[in-house]
């Protein structure tokens, strides 16, 4: 009997100690992060987005002084990850990583509440570029434009209303050409194979994705659609240099749930900025050939708004066709 009582006393004491310790911890520790931060990746492990997130995490952990756990949720084309974030508590405990594919989801029949997304920071800014087969008859952008205006060229894209469809549409509009759009729903690698084999005439895609085929001399970049030249093809001029004022940024960034307190956003912004300067991240960027670009909460929010508007217009063009 007394043994049981002793046990009981001990248990109560332990509970008391735990409660006290809990209180102490609560008052000392900063409000954020509260336990593990979940980092949602809307693709499977091993891909571009996945590797980028995993390269950011070590420095973010150190900076936030807490654990950050990557979670891959690829099902339903990323719709599940997106609704997971949209319905999360607005406390910054759930982060989400994506490219502009996020903004294109609603057009692809994926039900995603974009107004529930709070942009936190941009980390990468790549660009579209005009890529043709190495032995294509056009040596310069001008020659290409003239030919494209007179003939209906075949352009590869990664699905109706997908990223590289919009980039091609934007180019077509800018140079007043009419392309025949051919869908390669598996994405970049499939488009570039088709280009290398001569099945299509051009791709309007990122030079980073095409690095191997450009380096080996099978494909050639006519111009990059960004303000500055690209590290993978430093000798290729920008469209602007050639008198065609067109840019098509391709970006990746981090989002959280709308309504997250400003202080939390500021903490995250700082941690991510430090992470983009960490050796893990810079090495990855160098190996992949994608340019690092940091934009903080306000700048990134404004940028995302502009991009959303731009896509709206391009999508309206597709609908008219």
């Amino acid at each position: 009997m007394s043994g049981t009582r002793k046990m009981l006393c001990l248990v109560m004491l332990l509970v008391f100690a735990a409660v006290v310790a809990g209180c102490g911890g609560g008052s000392d520790k900063p409000k954020y992060p509260q336990g593990d931060v979940t980092f949602l990746i809307p693709q499977g492990p091993g891909g571009g987005n996945d590797m980028t997130v995993r390269a950011l995490i070590p420095a973010m952990k150190k900076e936030l002084n807490g654990n950050v756990v990557p979670v891959n949720k690829a099902e339903a084309r990323g719709a599940v990850a997106a609704s997971d974030l949209a319905s999360a508590k607005p406390d910054g405990q759930k982060l989400y990583f994506n490219s502009q594919s996020l903004l294109l989801m609603p057009y692809a029949g994926v039900d995603v509440k974009l107004e529930k997304f709070q942009p936190v920071a941009q980390v990468v800014e790549d660009t579209a570029s005009i890529i043709v087969k190495a032995d294509a008859p056009w040596k310069t952008l001008d020659e290409f434009i003239k030919y494209a205006q007179a003939n209906k060229l075949k352009v590869a894209h990664n699905g109706n209303g997908a990223l590289w469809h919009l980039s091609a549409l934007q180019l077509a509009k800018a140079i007043k050409a009419d392309f025949n759009y051919i869908a390669y729903p598996s994405g970049g690698a499939q488009m570039l194979t088709a280009l290398a084999s001569g099945e299509v005439d051009l791709c309007v895609i990122s030079p980073s994705e095409s690095k191997a085929l450009i380096d080996s001399g099978r494909l050639r970049v006519l111009a990059v659609m960004s303000d500055t030249r690209h590290a993978v093809v430093p000798n290729v001029p920008t469209c602007k240099e050639l008198g065609l004022d067109q840019t098509f940024p391709v970006w990746r960034g981090i989002f959280t749930t709308a309504g997250t307190p400003k202080e939390t956003l500021a903490l995250l912004e700082k941690a991510i900025k430090t992470a983009t300067e960490s050796p893990e991240f810079t090495t990855l960027a160098k190996n992949n050939g994608f340019p690092i670009k940091f934009r903080g909460v306000n700048e990134f929010s404004a940028f995302v708004k502009d991009e959303t508007e731009k896509y709206k217009k391009l999508m309206a063009d597709i609908k008219l066709k």
């Binding site: 099902e75 719709a79 692809a108 039900d111 109706n160 997908a162 869908a183 729903p185």
Partner: peptide, 20 residues
């Protein structure tokens, strides 16, 4: 799932998980 050319969902009955 998505039509490969036009990206119109087919036979999904509005189910997001069937899109692909």
């Amino acid at each position: 799932g998505f039509d490969p050319t036009t990206a119109v969902p087919r036979f999904t009955f509005g189910e997001q998980n069937l899109l692909s």
